[in-house]
């Protein structure tokens, strides 16, 4: 094995500082530090505390990417400090690096935030196995490898909050459970031993539930454990239909409406989809629709160019559909 040469370079750090007990407003402290090709982001936090300012505060514990304590934001990107190499961060952002807590508005002291909303939402999805357990079983409660695969790595979540505070919907809709809570919900919903009937209904409720996900993939991009939270959100959507708990509302009709449209035209009938999803509530879209109509942006149902070989599409829908609503 040939050892790679360790290189060092100067990097300018702009570091968020705030003490809720003493400061009226947060401020940024600048440090220029030597960064080696071996450093992870946590090494920089340590360097600042140990060599520059002992009052600098951040959470850290395991240093092995398993406790989830040290997640912060580097140039706006959620990052697990002990796992992320500085080389990658410099590659991403150059030599001007900003270190901030996961959520500046929740800052308590420097990198430390009040993660209360995260834990509250995590707890709200029943993040544990609900099962009638025989206290004196005659044999082990076995889970086959095939069934275990269904968890799809959702059990690897370390609750670091990287995805939760990268999610734009969490910041706008305070009821929204957020990607990490959905991963926890999926973890137990996909467990064959679980018999909780309420969890899936709970995470499908309007406002708080999976249907408010904006599909931006921020969570998938930041997860330090590569769990792909949005993929679990998609699976929770599918489960709601498969298990018959999907309510008949604008969100579910919006999903099913695609099938109807494709069956009829191959392509989407945009107006028809909104009508199917909204029902009578379509009236609220009329002012915008009128503006669009004036600009030639609305095609009536009879003007839609259907896909060629529509019969093929219809045949495939018939033979390949796996759910019913």
């Amino acid at each position: 094995m040939s050892a790679e040469k360790i290189t060092t370079q100067k990097v300018n750090f702009k570091v968020f500082r705030f003490n809720a007990d003493a400061d009226y407003l947060p401020y940024y402290e600048n440090y220029t530090l030597d960064v080696t090709s071996e450093d992870v982001v946590l090494d920089i936090l340590n360097k600042i505390k140990w060599e520059h300012d002992g009052s600098f505060s951040y959470r850290r514990s395991c240093r092995h990417g398993i406790c989830g304590a040290c997640a912060i934001k580097v140039n706006g990107r959620s990052t697990l400090a002990c796992k992320e190499s500085m080389t990658t961060m410099i590659e991403y952002f150059g030599n001007e690096i900003t270190l901030e807590p996961l959520s500046t508005k929740r800052a308590v002291k420097d990198m430390i935030i009040d993660k209360g909303d995260f834990w509250e939402k995590h707890a709200a999805v029943t993040p544990y196995l609900v099962a009638d357990i025989d206290e004196c079983p005659s044999c082990e409660n076995l889970v086959s490898p095939h069934d275990a695969e269904e968890l799809d790595e959702a059990d690897l979540c370390i609750q670091c909050g990287a995805c939760h505070y990268a999610c734009p919907v969490v910041e706008i809709n305070s009821d929204f459970f957020g990607p990490a809570a959905f991963v926890a919900a999926y973890r137990f919903e996909s467990d064959v031993r679980d018999s909780d009937g309420e969890r899936l209904i709970n995470v499908n409720e309007e406002k708080q539930g999976v249907w408010d996900c904006a599909k931006c993939f921020e969570c998938a991009e930041v997860c330090p454990k590569d769990i792909n939270p949005i993929n679990k959100i998609t699976k929770l959507h599918q489960m709601a239909f498969q298990r018959g708990v999907a309510k008949n509302n604008v969100a579910t009709r919006h999903a099913v409406g695609f099938l109807h449209s494709i069956k009829k035209n191959g392509v989407l009938d945009e107006g028809g989809l909104v009508l199917y999803s909204e029902g009578l509530h379509i009236v609220k879209h009329l002012p915008v629709a009128l503006q669009m109509f004036r600009k030639g942006k609305i095609v009536p149902p009879w003007g839609i160019t259907k896909s060629d070989k529509l019969d093929e599409i219809q045949k495939l829908i018939k033979s390949s559909s796996t759910v019913k609503f």
Binding site: T234, Q238, L259, I262, D308, S320, T322
Partner: peptide
């Protein structure tokens, strides 16, 4: 590709992944 259908726009994917 005039034969193409809608891609599902990640909404059909919420309903029926295989399809």
């Amino acid at each position: 590709l005039t034969e193409a259908s809608c891609c599902g726009a990640s909404h059909l994917q919420d309903y029926d992944d295989f399809l």
